[in-house]
Amino acid sequence: MELIKVEWNPEQGGFWIDPSAYVAELPKLVDGLPKGARAFASDPDHYRFGGPRCIKDLELIGASWAGDGDTRFEVRFGPNEWKHDTGLVIRYAQVSDLHLAAPGASVDDLGPVLLDEILPAKHGCSHEIVFIGGTLSISCADLDARWE
């Protein structure tokens, strides 16, 4: 991630996460984001850690390609029982790049979401999601995120 900090802190035995630089820069970035990405990234609850619309602590429950020439990709997240009322589905349009870095044995070992970062890109936006056990990075024309 470029602006969001996610670092292991051995003294605390957990991750130190800080979205403040991204949140401060977001007003300058939103005009460069496509419509769906802009709405998702600028949601006031997106980085409010205790809020029901914060991506932190969601669990990946599925991902699949859909549509013409595998250019649409969908990721489904289950809610954390202690803070989310619903899960989250993100649908990516015109995917140009997808990269999963999962040093664990499988995608099942990714664990909960720590944070994500959406940035403008040449052909739309990039979306990086950091889990406890890996990272998912997607470049696309736009995304549609719905709590359902």
Rank of each mutant, 00 (worst) to 15 (best):
L115H: 11
V130E: 08
G67R: 11
K83N: 11
E74M: 12
D97H: 13
V89D: 04
T71H: 14
E128P: 02
D85E: 13
A66M: 11
P52G: 08
A63E: 15
G133R: 01
G50P: 02
Y47T: 03
I61N: 12
E128A: 12
L114D: 02
P52V: 00
F49W: 12
R76E: 15
C125F: 00
G69W: 13
D70R: 13
G133S: 08
D97M: 05
R72D: 13
I129R: 04
L58K: 08
Y47P: 07
T71D: 13
A39F: 08
C54K: 04
T86L: 15
E74Y: 02
L88A: 10
H123Q: 14
Y92M: 06
G67H: 12
S106A: 11
D45I: 00
I118K: 12
P79R: 15
F40A: 15
H99M: 06
D116N: 14
R72A: 13
W82P: 02
G134K: 05
A102L: 09
L100S: 04
K122A: 15
E81D: 15
Q94H: 04
T86N: 15
G87I: 01
A41R: 01
G50C: 07
I61Q: 14
I90L: 03
D109C: 07
F131K: 04
V95A: 10
D68R: 15
K122I: 11
N80G: 10
H127N: 05
W65I: 01
G51I: 00
N80W: 04
G111F: 04
A41Y: 05
G133V: 02
F49T: 11
L115N: 12
W82M: 14
F77R: 08
L88Y: 06
P112E: 09
S96Q: 06
L60Q: 09
S126W: 00
L98Q: 09
G50W: 11
E117S: 03
I129W: 08
A41S: 09
V130W: 03
I129A: 05
D116M: 10
Y47I: 07
G104I: 01
F131Q: 00
G134R: 01
A66W: 02
L114W: 01
L60D: 02
D43P: 08
R91F: 02
D68Y: 14
L114I: 10
V75Q: 02
L119T: 06
F40S: 10
G50V: 09
D85L: 14
L110E: 04
L119G: 03
R53T: 00
L110C: 06
P44K: 00
G62L: 13
I90Y: 00
V130G: 03
L58E: 07
V107L: 12
I55M: 13
S106R: 05
H127G: 03
D109V: 00
F40Q: 06
I129K: 02
W65Y: 09
L119E: 04
T71N: 13
P44E: 15
D45R: 11
V130Q: 12
I61A: 11
Y92L: 01
K56H: 15
C54Y: 02
H127V: 03
D108G: 14
F73N: 08
F49L: 15
Y92K: 02
V130S: 11
I118Y: 10
A93M: 09
A101G: 06
P103R: 04
S126L: 02
E74L: 10
A41P: 12
A41V: 09
P112T: 06
P120Q: 14
I61D: 13
